[in-house]
């Protein structure tokens, strides 16, 4: 057991434990903070796999951006009125069936495929220059489309969430 393996299993336990808290917690604020731990351990996995730029973007975008947005959503919608809403386990059996089907298909695919047994990248070569070059050459059109998509989504979000003006 080298340090890599130990940290892999440590972060795996952290990831799955906090994900379970996110899904099954009764307290929404606690779920949001557990989501922060989940996203941080995902970033740790990116760093373990030497994907440094993706790890940093995960920190900035998910932990710094999307999580704050979600916390805003929690704070804006979680008044006393909606605390005691029915959180039923009404769909447990269909959920178990669907999820175990998904899990069975995924596990079967992972087991039955002969994955290339190469070592994970261990070198500390920076990935950011390669990614930047690919964004501006091979993937230029998807890059521009994604930026337009973000612009449209943000303008639309501002329009939807705005309080309607009395005219």
């Amino acid at each position: 057991m080298d340090l890599y393996t130990i940290s892999f299993y440590m972060f795996a336990v952290l990831l799955l434990g906090s994900a379970i808290v996110v899904v099954f917690s009764r307290n929404i604020v606690r779920a949001a903070f557990a989501l922060m731990i989940t996203l941080l351990s995902i970033a740790a996995f990116y760093v373990l796999m030497m994907a440094d730029f993706v790890g940093i973007v995960q920190l900035l975008l998910y932990v710094g951006g999307i999580l704050v947005l979600i916390l805003f959503g929690v704070m804006l919608t979680n008044r006393q009125i909606s605390v005691d809403i029915r959180e039923g386990a009404i769909q447990t059996i269909p959920a178990v069936i669907v999820t175990s089907t998904i899990g069975g298909i995924l596990a079967g695919a992972i087991w039955s495929t002969a994955w290339p047994m190469r070592e994970a990248a261990r070198s500390v070569a920076a990935t950011a220059p390669v990614i930047g070059e690919m964004f501006l050459t091979t993937y230029l059109l998807p890059f521009e489309v994604a930026s337009v998509l973000l612009l449209v989504a943000l303008v639309g979000a501002a329009l939807i969430a705005r309080r309607e003006r009395k005219s």
Binding site: V57, L61, Y62, G65, L150, G156, A157, I160
Partner: peptide
């Protein structure tokens, strides 16, 4: 991640 960010903004709105 881009689509997730757009989804987060529009979904929360």
């Amino acid at each position: 991640m881009t689509v997730a960010a757009a989804e987060a903004a529009v979904g929360l709105a």
